[in-house]
Amino acid sequence: MNVEEEVGRLKEEMQRLGQLQPDGSYKVKFGVLFNDDRCANIFEALVGTLRAAKKRKVVKYEGELLLQGVHDNVEITLLPLPATTTA
């Protein structure tokens, strides 16, 4: 799986596990993602996928590196897609 494909799968899983916010974003705690059986089967390196998604401004969270246990309560936000305008 390439990075773009993994980021796309991450978006799907965050929508499945997260809470929809009024602004269209989704929020999910790192521990929920990390401990989910389906995510464990999809992502070989969840932390690496999260870092790639953060670099692409798809998600945001505090810090650089998330560690299981220590950062289980860190909230990860899947940012809403920018509105497109039609001319």
Score class of each variant (00 low, 15 high):
residue 65 L to H: 07
residue 2 N to Y: 03
residue 34 F to R: 14
residue 39 C to G: 13
residue 27 K to S: 12
residue 36 D to S: 08
residue 3 V to C: 04
residue 6 E to G: 03
residue 57 K to A: 12
residue 36 D to E: 09
residue 11 K to Y: 03
residue 3 V to Y: 02
residue 30 F to V: 07
residue 51 R to N: 09
residue 12 E to V: 13
residue 56 R to G: 12
residue 43 F to D: 02
residue 41 N to Y: 13
residue 43 F to N: 05
residue 9 R to A: 13
residue 34 F to G: 00
residue 21 Q to C: 10
residue 86 T to R: 14
residue 43 F to P: 04
residue 12 E to I: 15
residue 84 T to A: 11
residue 1 M to Q: 12
residue 60 K to S: 15
residue 74 V to M: 01
residue 69 G to A: 12
residue 68 Q to S: 15
residue 10 L to C: 09
residue 29 K to W: 00
residue 10 L to K: 11
residue 38 R to M: 09
residue 14 M to Q: 04
residue 79 L to V: 04
residue 72 D to R: 06
residue 37 D to R: 15
residue 31 G to L: 06
residue 79 L to F: 12
residue 61 Y to A: 09
residue 68 Q to H: 13
residue 52 A to E: 07
residue 30 F to R: 00
residue 53 A to I: 01
residue 35 N to S: 11
residue 13 E to L: 11
residue 13 E to Y: 06
residue 85 T to Y: 15
residue 18 G to H: 00
residue 44 E to H: 05
residue 83 A to P: 07
residue 77 T to F: 01
residue 29 K to G: 08
residue 23 D to V: 09
residue 70 V to N: 12
residue 13 E to R: 06
residue 63 G to K: 02
residue 23 D to T: 08
residue 33 L to M: 09
residue 48 G to E: 04
residue 44 E to N: 11
residue 51 R to I: 11
residue 36 D to Y: 10
residue 81 L to K: 13
residue 12 E to G: 04
residue 53 A to C: 05
residue 4 E to F: 13
residue 22 P to F: 07
residue 40 A to Q: 15
residue 60 K to R: 15
residue 87 A to P: 14
residue 39 C to I: 14
residue 29 K to H: 04
residue 3 V to F: 02
residue 50 L to P: 02
residue 47 V to L: 08
residue 12 E to K: 12
residue 57 K to T: 11
residue 24 G to E: 08
residue 86 T to G: 13
residue 33 L to Y: 02
residue 21 Q to N: 04
residue 44 E to Q: 10
residue 17 L to W: 05
residue 76 I to P: 06
residue 7 V to Q: 07
residue 35 N to H: 10
residue 18 G to E: 05
residue 63 G to S: 09
residue 45 A to S: 15
residue 66 L to G: 07
residue 27 K to L: 15
residue 87 A to F: 12
residue 29 K to T: 15
residue 46 L to Y: 00
residue 13 E to N: 06
residue 59 V to R: 02
